[in-house]
Computed example of a mutant assay.
Amino acid sequence: MPSIAAYDFPEFIETVCFLKDRPAFALADGTLRLPAGGETSLVLHEGGLLSAVYDSSGKRLLTGGEDGRVVATIDGEQIEEIAAIGRRWIGAVAGGPNGAVGFASGRSAYVVPAKGALKELKHPRTVEGLAFAPKGLRVATAHYDGASLFFPATDAGPAMLGWKGAHLDAAFSPDGRFLVTIMQENALHGWRLDDGKHMRMTGYPAKVKDWSWSAKGKFLATSGAPAAILWPFSGKDGPMGKAPIELGTRGNAMVTAVACHPAEDMLAIGYNDGMILAVRFADSKEALLRRGGSSPVRTMAWDRAGRLLAFGAESGEAGVVDIAG
Rank of each mutant, 00 (worst) to 15 (best):
I4C: 10
A6P: 01
A6K: 13
P10W: 05
F12Y: 14
I13C: 05
I13K: 04
V16E: 05
V16C: 15
L19S: 12
D21K: 14
A24T: 04
A24E: 06
A24V: 00
F25S: 06
A26K: 03
A28M: 10
A28V: 00
A28K: 09
R33L: 02
P35H: 07
T40V: 13
V43K: 14
H45S: 09
H45Q: 11
S51H: 03
A52Y: 02
A52V: 01
V53Y: 00
L62V: 13
T63R: 06
T63Q: 09
T63D: 12
G65A: 03
D67M: 03
R69S: 15
V71D: 08
G76F: 05
G76V: 05
Q78A: 15
E80V: 14
I85M: 13
G86C: 11
W89V: 07
V93A: 06
G96T: 02
P97D: 09
G99L: 09
V101R: 04
G102N: 10
A104R: 02
A104Q: 03
G106S: 07
Y110A: 09
Y110V: 03
V111A: 08
K115S: 14
G116F: 11
G116A: 09
A117K: 15
A117P: 07
L118A: 08
K122Q: 12
R125V: 02
V127P: 01
P134I: 05
R138D: 00
D145Y: 01
F151R: 12
F151T: 12
T154D: 12
D155K: 14
G157T: 03
L161M: 12
L161A: 04
K164N: 11
A166D: 06
A170N: 03
A170S: 09
S173E: 08
P174E: 09
E185R: 15
R192D: 06
R192K: 11
D195Y: 00
R200K: 12
Y204L: 10
K207W: 00
K207S: 13
K207L: 05
V208R: 02
K209T: 14
A215M: 08
K216A: 13
F219G: 02
T222G: 05
T222H: 07
T222W: 02
G224D: 09
I229M: 12
W231S: 01
P232M: 07
G238V: 01
G241D: 13
P244T: 06
I245P: 00
I245M: 13
L247H: 03
G248Y: 06
A253K: 15
A253P: 06
A257G: 10
P262V: 11
A263Y: 10
N272F: 06
G274K: 11
A278E: 15
V279K: 07
D283Y: 04
S284Y: 02
S284C: 03
E286M: 14
A287S: 14
G292P: 11
S295L: 10
T299W: 01
T299I: 00
T299M: 03
M300S: 02
M300R: 06
W302Y: 13
D303M: 08
R304V: 11
A313C: 15
G316P: 10
E317Q: 14
A318C: 10
V320D: 04
D322S: 12
G325P: 04
